[in-house]
Design a protein around this nucleic acid. Structure first.
Length: 880
RNA sequence: GGGUGAGUGGCGGAAUGGUAUACGCGUUAGUCUCAAAAACUAAUGGGGGCAACUCCAUGAGGGUUCGACUCCCUCCUUACCCACCA
C-alpha cells in the first residue's frame, strides 16, 4: 500500500495544473465573481503563514465558485514601489529594481507552493512602466478635473525618511515607517482633493457589506461634524473672528474666545491694538505685555504635535484683544492657547466653560468667568458647577432662546443665527486633502511640467484648454468642482505631461541616497529636451514621486485588463468584472480602503465606469485575523517566532498547511500557531488517504439510509460554511464525517464507497486541492461511476476535480427516520426519547408527552405539572 | 476620554433561544514492539458517591423566558482603532 507523500503528489499536480491552464480565467464573465486579495508589498522578508491565511480563504472561495459554475477572476500582483526597497538600496547599493524583482520571485514561488489558483496571466507589477504609465495618466485626469493641486502647506516631514508623509501615515505624531518624530515643514506639495468626496465617502458606506468596525473607523477618520460658523466682532474695530462650533445653542455661555497660536490674527495683534487705541484708549490700560504673547507663540510653534498632546496641563496667554458676544453683547476676552488646533475648523473657538470639559479646565486655571446656560430641567437651580455639564437640557440665561430644549430644538437656534446674520450652518471634517508628493526615488514620477514663462503670464493648462478635447474629463471636472472650483492662480505655469509622452520613465541611473530633495532632481537625462505644452518654450518636469498608495488605489481596475496598451482598462472589461465581489485583506482601514474608494468615485465621475456598476468598488470586505506565533506574540523577527510556509510544506505538505490554517479558528479572529496542531491535521489527511486506499475499489451499489443522510448533511453543512466563510467548522464537519463513516464501517453498515468518495472528494477539493485531485484521478482509473482514463495522466482540463460540479444535496436525506428528543423538567435535561420523525409534529403532542412522561416519571409523578412546552422535533419541557 | 469587538475545559475553539463543552490539540491508560516512534483502542470540565446517580460550572451580579453561552441592564477584564476635532 502506498504511503501518503505530499511532496510527490503536490509538485506533480501543480505542474500539471499549470501545463493544462487549469486556472485560466473564463473570460466570458458569465455569472462572474471577482475574488480579490490585497496584493502584497514584496519585501525582503518572506511571506509567513499569517499572510497565507487570507490567500487560502480566497482560494477556497474561488474554487468553490468555479465548481458552482461561475467564471471567476482571481488575480495576484505586486505593490512593488516603496520605501523599504529604497532604504535597502541605500544600505547595500543594490538597485531597488533588482531587489524588488528578486523578492517578487521568492513571493511567487511561495504562493505557488501553497497551490493557490491564481491566474498568473493577469499578474501586475506597479513598478513596471506598463502599469505606472496609467498611474500617471490617472494623475493627469485628476489634474484636469481640478482634483490635483500644488500648494504651499505645513506638512508632515519625517527627518529620517527625508520625505513628507500623508496624514494617514503619521501615527501618534511619529512616522509610521521609521518611528521618528514627525516635524512640520512648509513645503510646496501636490494634493488630491479627497475632501470634495467626504460626504459620499461616508454616505456610500451604508450600502456595502463590510465589517461595521471598519465602516465606523472610516467615518471617524473622515470625522464629519455638523455645527455652525459664528462671527465675533473684534471690540473697537470693524473686523471679525469666525469660530466653528457644534454647540451654537450654548452661545450665551461663551465667555471668552481662544485662538490657536498659528491663527492669522495672532501675528497682527500689535497692529490691531494700535488701530483700536485710536478710538478707544481703554485697551492701553490692560495689564498686558505683547512679549508674553510672542514668547508663548514661539514656544508653541517649536513643539511637535506629540509634545503638545503630551502636556496635560492647559497653557495659554491673554491676547490683548476683546470680542463682542453677538447675542449677549458682552465684551469677552480673546486668549491664545495650543489646545486649539489650526488644522480643524477655523483655528479659533468660542469657549463655553460651563459646557465643555477643556474650556472648563482652562477657565478654572486662568480664572475666567463660567456661565451656565443649559440646565437639566426647568427647576434645576444649580449655582456653581464643579465640572462642565455636557448633557442635554433646557436653555436658561439665553435671551429669546430661554426654554428651548436641547438637543431637540437645536434647529431653531441655527435658523435664529441665520436670521440675525451672525452665523450659519456649517459642516466640518477631520479629513484633510491627500498629500501625495514624496521626495523619494522608488515611486511613480508625477507627470507634470512647469513653465516659468507661462507662470509669469498667469497661464496654465486650465487657461489654455477652455475647449479641451477630453470632454469626458472636463464634464466630470464640472461635477467634481461644483463644491469647490480650482483656483487658477495655484496652477499658474503647470501643465500635465501630454498623453503621448507617458510613461514618464523613472530614470535608472540615479543616486538615490536621500538629501531632502527628490533624487530625480539630480538626474541629468530626466530634464533633457522638456518643452512647455502651452507655449513650447523650455520647461522642467516635476521631480517628486507619488505616494505608493496612489499605485494601489486603482490596481483592482487594472487586474481586469492588465495588458491594455490603450487605456488603463477597457470599459467593457470593467463592466464585465467589477465591482469586486469578495475582497480579503487586513489592516489599511483608513488608508488604502479609503483612497481606493475615492479613486473609484473619481473615475466613476469621469465617466469611465458604467453607472450601473454603482459607486462602490468592493461589495464585501473581510479581514483575516492575525496569526500569532506559538508564544501568542505577534510574529516578528524580534521574537524569533515567525513561521513561514517553507517551514511547513516540505515536511507536511501544502494541503496540511491550508487545512490547518483554516481549522485554527474563525477566519477573522486572532489566533496562535501551534505545531502540534499541524501534526494533528497531518494525521487527519493521512487517515483520509488510508481510508481511500482501503475502500475506493470496493464494489457495492447498496447503501444504508444512514450513510445517505451523513453524506447529504455533510455536503449541506460544508456548502453553508463556505458561503459564510466559516472554514473552521467546514473542516470539523469533514472530520466528523470521517469519524461517523468509519464507525459505521466497523458496524457493518452498507456503504456505496464509490458514491461516498465521488461526493466527499469534491467538497474537500477547495480545501485540499492536491489530495483531492490525486484521489479523484485514482477513482477515475478505478472506473467506479466515472469515465475511465487510460492512465493517471491528467492532460485534459475537464478531467480535473477542480472543473467538476459542486455536489448537490438532497433535502429528503437531511432528516432522520427517528429523532431523539431531550426531555426537560424545569429546563433541566432529565432524559430523552426516540420517536418516529413522522409523529414528532405538534399535532401529536399528547402522544409525545405520554412517552416523555415515562422517562421522567420519578420527577413528575405525584406532582402538579403546570405546563408542558413542546417544540416539535426539538425538545419537551415539563414545568412543575 | 471615545468607538468597536471579545471573555466557554489544561490549550485552539463549537453551539446565536432548545441535550453546553462538537472538532482538534494536549494528557492518561491499554494494544502492537526487544525497545522506542508511528498507528490503533479507550478515558478526559469540576465536586460528591461502591453504584444507579447527583450537585456545580460559559468573566461578576441582576433581569426577561417554560428554557439563556446566546436577548436586556449594571460592573469587571482584555484586544484593536481613534483621541485637546471645539
Amino acid at each position: 500500500m502506498n504511503q501518503y507523500d505530499p511532496s510527490k503528489i503536490e509538485a506533480k499536480w501543480q505542474k500539471k495544473w499549470e501545463e493544462s491552464g487549469l486556472y485560466q480565467t473564463d473570460e466570458s464573465g458569465a455569472n462572474k465573481k471577482y475574488v480579490l486579495d490585497m496584493f502584497p508589498y514584496p519585501s525582503g522578508a518572506t511571506l509567513h503563514v499569517g499572510h497565507i491565511e487570507g490567500y487560502v480563504g480566497t482560494d477556497i472561495i474561488s474554487r468553490y465558485f468555479r465548481m458552482k459554475g461561475a467564471s471567476v477572476l482571481h488575480p495576484m500582483g505586486w505593490d512593488a514601489f516603496g520605501l523599504p526597497a529604497e532604504n535597502y538600496a541605500i544600505k547595500t547599493g543594490i538597485h531597488p529594481d533588482e531587489s524588488t524583482h528578486e523578492n517578487i520571485k521568492t513571493f511567487k514561488r511561495q504562493l505557488r507552493s501553497v497551490g493557490l489558483s491564481y491566474d498568473w496571466s493577469h499578474e501586475i507589477d506597479t513598478s513596471s512602466p506598463e502599469y505606472y504609465r496609467w498611474t500617471q495618466w490617472l494623475f493627469t485626469l485628476f489634474f484636469k478635473m481640478g482634483l490635483a493641486y500644488k500648494q504651499e502647506a505645513d506638512v508632515n516631514w519625517c527627518p529620517s525618511c527625508e520625505t513628507v508623509l500623508a496624514n494617514e501615515q503619521v501615527v501618534d505624531g511619529k512616522c509610521e515607517r521609521s518611528g521618528d518624530e514627525v516635524i512640520k515643514k512648509k513645503l510646496n506639495q501636490w494634493f488630491f482633493k479627497i475632501t470634495d468626496y467626504a460626504d459620499r465617502l461616508i454616505d456610500d458606506l451604508a450600502g456595502i457589506d463590510w465589517l461595521e468596525e471598519v465602516k465606523t473607523q472610516q467615518k471617524n477618520w473622515i470625522g464629519r461634524s455638523d455645527g455652525a460658523l459664528i462671527e465675533f466682532k473684534i471690540d473697537g474695530l470693524d473686523r471679525e473672528i469666525n469660530v466653528f462650533t457644534t454647540r451654537p445653542d450654548t452661545l450665551y455661555g461663551a465667555t471668552f474666545l481662544v485662538l490657536s497660536p498659528e491663527h492669522p490674527v495672532v501675528e497682527e495683534i500689535s497692529n490691531i491694538r494700535k488701530q483700536i487705541s485710536k478710538t478707544d484708549n481703554d485697551i492701553l490700560n490692560d495689564p498686558y505685555d505683547i512679549e508674553d504673547v510672542k514668547s508663548y507663540v514661539a514656544e508653541a510653534k517649536a513643539k511637535s504635535d506629540a509634545d503638545r498632546r503630551e502636556n496635560k496641563e492647559k497653557t495659554g496667554v491673554f491676547s490683548g484683544l476683546y470680542c463682542i458676544n453677538p447675542v449677549s453683547g458682552e465684551k469677552i476676552p480673546v486668549w491664545i492657547a495650543d489646545y486649539v488646533l489650526m488644522g480643524y475648523g477655523t483655528g479659533a473657538i468660542m469657549a463655553v466653560p460651563a459646557h465643555d470639559e477643556r474650556d472648563f479646565e482652562f477657565a478654572t486655571k486662568f480664572n475666567l468667568p463660567i456661565k451656565q446656560v443649559i440646565f437639566k430641567s426647568k427647576d434645576d437651580t444649580t449655582k456653581d458647577l464643579s465640572e462642565a455639564y455636557v448633557g442635554s437640557g433646557v436653555l436658561k440665561n439665553s435671551g429669546d432662546w430661554d426654554g428651548l430644549m436641547m438637543p431637540d430644538e437645536f434647529d431653531k437656534v441655527i435658523s435664529d443665527l441665520d436670521k440675525k446674520k451672525i452665523g450659519e450652518k456649517k459642516t466640518t471634517y477631520h479629513l484633510r486633502d491627500w498629500l501625495i508628493s514624496r521626495q523619494r526615488y522608488w515611486g511613480v514620477p508625477i507627470p507634470m511640467i512647469y513653465c516659468e514663462s507661462c507662470a509669469h503670464d498667469g497661464k496654465s493648462w486650465f487657461t489654455e484648454n477652455v475647449t479641451a478635447s477630453d470632454s469626458a474629463a472636463v464634464s466630470a471636472r464640472e461635477i467634481a468642482s461644483s463644491s469647490s472650483t480650482p483656483r487658477n492662480d495655484d496652477y499658474a505655469g503647470w501643465y500635465p505631461a501630454p498623453e503621448s509622452d507617458l510613461p514618464i520613465l523613472l530614470p535608472h541611473d540615479v543616486d538615490f541616497r536621500p538629501t531632502g530633495k527628490s533624487p530625480i532632481a539630480l538626474s541629468k537625462s530626466f530634464q533633457e529636451g522638456v518643452t512647455c505644452p502651452g507655449c513650447g518654450g523650455p520647461a522642467s518636469r516635476e521631480v517628486d514621486t507619488m505616494d505608493t498608495f496612489v499605485d494601489s488605489s486603482w490596481y483592482f481596475l487594472r487586474f481586469v485588463d492588465p495588458k491594455n496598451e490603450k487605456e488603463f482598462a477597457s470599459r467593457e472589461a470593467i463592466a464585465k468584472w467589477l465591482p469586486v465581489d469578495v475582497y480579503v485583506g487586513g489592516g489599511h482601514v483608513v488608508q488604502h480602503l479609503l483612497f481606493a474608494r475615492f479613486f473609484w468615485k473619481v473615475i466613476f465621475d469621469a465617466g469611465y465606469i458604467e453607472k450601473s456598476l454603482g459607486e462602490e468598488p468592493f461589495l464585501k470586505l473581510r479581514a483575516p485575523g492575525w496569526i500569532l506565533g506559538p508564544d501568542s506574540r505577534k510574529m516578528s523577527k524580534r521574537w524569533h517566532n515567525v513561521v513561514t510556509p517553507d517551514d511547513i510544506i516540505p515536511k507536511y505538505g501544502a494541503d496540511t498547511l491550508r487545512m490547518y490554517e483554516m481549522f485554527l479558528g474563525p477566519f477573522d479572529a486572532m489566533k496562535p500557531w501551534s505545531l502540534t496542531g499541524v501534526e494533528g491535521m497531518s494525521r487527519f489527511i493521512k487517515k483520509i488517504y488510508r481510508l481511500f486506499e482501503e475502500t475506493h475499489a470496493l464494489e457495492n451499489k447498496e447503501q444504508d439510509k444512514q450513510i445517505d443522510i451523513l453524506l447529504n448533511s455533510t455536503i449541506k453543512k460544508i456548502t453553508d460554511d463556505i458561503e459564510g466563510m466559516r472554514f473552521n467548522t467546514a473542516i470539523s464537519t469533514m472530520m466528523e464525517f470521517y469519524n461517523d463513516l468509519t464507525d459505521a464501517q466497523k458496524l457493518g453498515t452498507k456503504i456505496n464507497w464509490s458514491e461516498v468518495w465521488e461526493k466527499f472528494l469534491r467538497v474537500m477539493a477547495p480545501f485540499a486541492p492536491h489530495l483531492a485531485e490525486e484521489l479523484w484521478q485514482r477513482l477515475a482509473v478505478g472506473g467506479l461511476g466515472l469515465e475511465k482514463t487510460k492512465s493517471q495522466e491528467l492532460t485534459v482540463k475537464s478531467q480535473s476535480i477542480h472543473t467538476q460540479n459542486w455536489p448537490e444535496y438532497d433535502e429528503k436525506y437531511l432528516v432522520q427516520d427517528e429523532v431523539v428528543i431531550p426531555v426537560q423538567v424545569n429546563g433541566k435535561r432529565r432524559g430523552e426519547i426516540s420517536i418516529e420523525y413522522s409523529v414528532s409534529s405538534i399535532e401529536n403532542k399528547a402522544r409525545v408527552e405520554e412517552r416523555a412522561r415515562e422517562v421522567v416519571a420519578s420527577y413528575v409523578d405525584g406532582v402538579v405539572v403546570k405546563k408542558v412546552v413542546y417544540v416539535p422535533g426539538k425538545i419537551i419541557n415539563f414545568v412543575i
